[in-house]
Every structure is written in C-alpha cells, then in structure tokens.
Design a protein around this nucleic acid. Structure first.
Lengths: 351, 351
DNA sequence: TTGTATGCGTTATCAC
DNA sequence: GTGATAACGCATACAA
C-alpha cells in the first residue's frame, strides 16, 4: 500500500504538498500538481481513509441499523439510502438489530468509535436507545430515525404518512360499499402501527361505521400473524366483508386464511395492504395496498445526514412522505345478495 | 469521547497499562486492573477502533458487495454473512454494485484503505475486478467470491451446486413424464447460469430427450425477462410442456406469461424454479424450486474470512453447498389427451 | 508556493 | 508490573 510519504518522495515534494494536491487546495502550483498527480496515478495510490478519519475525527461512513434485512420492506429503504450516500461520497455500514435492543445497542456503541458521519436507524425498541443516539449527536454525527420514531425523540426523522394512508385506504373500502370492516394492526407499541390504526379509526368514525372490539386484531408484521388473526376474524358470526391490514405481509397472510376458509378474495372479502412491496403484483389476487415509497424513506434520511455534515444547523425536521393508493385485485365492491357478475349466487351469511 | 489518555490519568496509571488491561494481557496486577476497569466503566469508555485500526493496520470490518440488495436473493446471503460476522466481532459494510463494474470497482478501491479484514463479493462482471481482488489479498484481507466465480479466480469461493441442482430438477420433470422441456437460462456470461444450463442438458442427454435450440432461451435473472422469454416458448408450434427456469424470478415471469396465454400451470405447463425465495410459497401456484440455502452462502463466506484472519493458511477452498428440491404446485405429471382430473378436455396441440 | 512539525488514539517495544 | 515513547497515515497550522 502506497502512502502519502512515498508519493512525496517520488514526486520530490513534501507530504504537505501531496496533501494539498489531494485536497485540491488552490495554493499548489500547476506544475507541481501535475507532477504529484502523475506519481499518484502511476502507483494507483488511494489515500488512507483510516488516517484521514483519525485526523479529521470523522469518516465517510453512515451507520444504518435495520431490524432485519430479510424482511422485504427493508431492502428498499437500505437501497434508497445507499444510493444517495454513494452519490455523495458516503458509504453505508449495514447492521441487523434482529429486533433485539441488546444487539442494536452493541452496534451503536461500538460503531460510534469509527466516528461515522451519521446514524440512520429503524429502532428495535422505541423505549430505549435514546442515550446512544444522543452520544452520536454529541460526537458530531447526525442521527435520523426512520419509519418508527420513539415518542421522546426530538431530532430528525423520516416516516411515511401512516395515518393518512390508512385513512385513505379505509375510505376507499367504505366507498366500495363495505360496512363491516376489520383491521389487523401491527404491534401497537410501535408508532407506525398505532398511526395506521388511528387512520383506520378516523375513516370509520367519519362514516359513522361501528368498529366492534373483535374487529381490531393486533398482530406481528408478518404473514403468520396475519393468517392467524384473519382466521379469527373470518370465524366471527358477523364476519367482516373487508379487512384493512397494517402491512402487506399481514395482508398476504389474510389472503391465505381466506383461501383456506374457502372464501374468495375479493368476492367474499376485500383485503387491503400497506407498503407496496415489489411482490404485491405477483400474489393472487394482486394486492391493493398503500404505496409508501419505500426507497424514498432511506433516500431522504441519507440526504438529511449529508446536509447536516455539510453544516445544516436548522431545526430538527420530521419528513413525512405522502402515500398513495395502489388498487389491484384484492379489493372489490361489496357484493349484494343479487347474482354477481360471474353468475354465482352469493350465499347470505348466517349473521 | 473519552480516550485512553483520560482513562490513564483518572486511574493514575500510564496509557500502556490501560492498553494492557483493554487487551487482557496477563501481566497486569489484579488491583491495577480493577482500578482501570472501574474508571472505564464509569466513563462508558469505548476504545477507538479508528486508532486501533491505524496502529494494527486492520479493522474488524468485512466489505460485502452485492449487485442489488432489492433482488430478493441477496438479503438472505447478506443476512447469513452478517450473523456469522457479528457473532465473531466483525462488522459488515454493505455495498450495492448495481451490476455496474465501475461502481463495484470504486467501492473496492476506496474501501480497501479502511484495511478491512475481508471482502465478500458477488461480482458484477466476471471478467473484471481480479486486480482489485488481488490488491486486497496483498494487503492482508481475505477475499471470498460468492455465487458467481470468475473463471480465472483461484482463491476462496462459495457457491451452490448449480449443476447438480439443475440436473435434479430436470430429472424430476422428466420423471413426471415430460418430454418437451425447455429452459430459460440466466445471462450466460455468468457461471451460475452456465452451470444450471449444463445440469439441464445433462439430464436431457441422459434421458435421450432432444433439446431444440429454441428451447434454450437466455434471459436476465428477473421477472420481466422470464415473462418475455416464456412468451416466446409458449408461441412455439412444438410448445414445451415444462420449463426449467434458471431462477425463481424467471419462473414467476414464466407463470405470468402462461396465465396471460390462457394456459394453466401446472395443467398445461409445469414450471420449475431455482433459489427457494421466501415468497415461493405465496405465489399461485406455489413454485416448485431448487432450494439453495441462500443464507448459508453468506454464512460460509464470512466463516472463511474469519478463519483466514485467524491464521488459516490452507489452500484456497471452493465450498459447494448442496441443493435440494422443493416440490410445490407449479409442477405436475404430464397430462395426456384423456380427460384430466378436473374434467377438462385437453385440446390436442397443433404441432 | 512549499516544507516542517504536531497530533489524532491506539499498540508495541523497551527500559525501569 | 509499569511507564515512556515511537509509529501507523493523514491534515493542518505555521514557518520559510
């Protein structure tokens, strides 16, 4: 590995001059600059980011912590962040917290000593980790919370408009004629799940539709939970005709439960998701969902970090990215007792 | 940020002693050790990995480069590597090459100056990047190629048993009675695609089944390519009754093409995939596929890096992970002209 | 315009 | 057992 010292010797200048060339200071005579550059090229010299970081007390790394990269929601977020970071000369250090605060905390404490430019985090536990985050801020690293925000966090954050998206989705189901609409929420200790539930409730309230307590099922954000809770809903005497699922994985689980129960989606039950994962187009039926511009979440977070490093001292911002509905095959108008378009009779439900 | 110097002063010892405590050298008197440790705890001191790295000329980072984390194949690989790395005190720096050699090369050159312990790479271009890889080796970093291996690479590598898996899958289709079996391969400049094609060919040869040239379609490893090439196959006068797709995304595209053509999968055409992505269970029909233990690929690669760092000087190893078939709904026995189980008549094909 | 010297936080070597 | 010091590669303040 060539070092700045060798370059200096070979170019017949001091290391200070080489450093000035490297950092494009205008105070270097053109002839000198050329000579140094030639040597640099010929040796394929790359300045040591390690040495530079130690000296400047800052690296070009952005630490990004997500619960689990194999959850199909996160690759998009990571990719969005990575793209923006790369374009601006920053590099991403990816960590899976495994939804385990202990692991997240270990990552945070250790990686801070690399003096990263920033920390982008989808926290595992909303009630913890604030001291670690503050330690980053104190050390001069930007911190951005993404997707889930601890209630006490007062710094930068990026989320989707969970409440609004859920509200629009539910309103759409209501417009389709549904009156018995249930929801399967995510874990309610998380802000996103709470807000999506709030949006659902607001739409139902505005339409003066009742929401029996059994119509609100709390689940994990995965297929298994969605399937399990949907089974409960489908067994109810007053079976809902539509389900608003708090994310697409839950919705896919619900579709599976419906199929198992011998019900047709959307003829017997409409199912709405949230996320707009890439696979939504491939499921049968294709999933109607709230598109939350996943990669944008990461991209905006990375941009905040970059701006902060560049000296942006403005007040903490909470970027709320609007959602939009993607209507596909899993939702449809409420079928009445009359013959349907497909010629099948709709059996009146027992309730 | 507390430094070793402050710890030394507060504990009333020299920095050398603190360092000895940190590195658990036995030559520290127990009383001193306790005193130093107390100060460390009270300040929440974490040693600077930056300083340590500069001094030791090595960090605990492993650079991992994949083409695109949003391709559902890679999160599993990354996760497998990250888990093993984390357990052993290493951290993963994730990079997307975007299948672009220029970007991959930029990452490789720059991140090398962080003196990572290793490089785990799924290369974008099999014909390039060898000098960069060698530079890592020269700098004392382990290098492991994963999934795709440049033909001239003589170092460590981890792949699935592509040829064997494809062979088994094709044999299965043959055992189901299919005789007109086509394949949609991945890009044939990649080793994995070539080997899967080879396995397909071997099974067909052994069964003395002809493979007309139109029955081999080259595609990208994505849904769009699979759909497009399947459309070509399905238009052939001698339409195949089964397709072996070189990966699951291609297979999903093929299923879509079949649906568009009004064909039933698996009644009219059997489709076999490769990868065993998590979503395979969710498609309709569920996809029969070759399971290649995705996370194991990353895990084994990380383990190699760790072993090399620990001093393993043995000859370069190519770990070849066996595959196994996952039979689901997208494949079935060849239907003859007789009435099928569903009562539908199978129309004789024009060919 | 260029060179020299210092220090970033750590480990390792060598006195004591 | 412990302390003092050099060195890792670089940026920077200051001298020349």
């Amino acid at each position: 590995m060539a070092t700045i010292k060798q370059i200096a010797k070979l170019a017949g200048v001091s290391i200070g001059t080489v450093s000035n060339v490297l950092n494009e200071l205008p105070s270097v005579r053109e002839a000198t600059r050329k000579r140094v550059l030639t040597v640099i090229d010929s040796l394929g010299y790359q300045p040591s980011l390690l040495g530079r970081a130690l000296r400047k007390d800052q690296t070009n790394m952005i630490v990004m912590i997500v619960p689990d990269i194999t959850n199909p929601f996160f690759p998009g977020v990571v990719r969005g962040a990575e793209d923006v970071a790369f374009q601006n000369g920053y590099r991403l250090v990816l960590c899976n917290s495994d939804n385990d605060y202990a692991k997240e905390s270990a990552y945070m404490r250790e990686l801070r000593t690399y003096r990263p430019s920033g920390l982008i985090i989808v926290p595992a536990d909303l009630s913890k980790g604030q001291e670690e985050a503050r330690a980053y801020l104190n050390a001069g690293s930007a911190v951005v919370y993404v997707d889930r925000i601890p209630s006490r966090w007062r710094g930068d954050a990026v989320t989707s408009a969970h409440e609004e998206g859920a509200y629009e989705a539910t309103k759409h189901l209501i417009a389709l004629g549904h009156k018995r609409i249930a929801t399967i929420t995510g874990p309610l200790q998380g802000t996103s799940a709470v807000q999506r539930l709030a949006g659902f409730q607001r739409a139902m309230n505005e339409a003066r539709l009742p929401v029996p307590t059994q119509y609100i099922q709390e689940s994990n954000f995965n297929r298994a939970g969605g399937c399990e809770k949907a089974e409960l809903l489908l067994k109810l005497r007053a079976r809902p005709t539509a389900i608003f699922a708090a994310n697409d994985l839950i919705a896919m689980g619900a579709i599976k439960a419906a199929r198992r129960a011998g019900l047709s989606c959307p003829d017997d039950i409409s199912i709405f998701g949230f996320d707009n994962l890439e696979i939504d187009d491939e499921t049968t039926p294709a999933l109607s969902t709230v598109d939350q511009f996943i990669s944008e979440l990461g991209a905006r977070a990375a941009q905040i970090v970059i701006n902060r490093v560049a000296g942006d001292k403005s007040a903490a911002k909470h970027i709320c990215i609007p959602t939009c509905l993607r209507l596909r095959g899993s939702t449809g108008a409420l079928k009445t007792r009359r013959a349907t378009a497909t010629g099948k009779k709709v059996v009146e439900r027992k309730s």
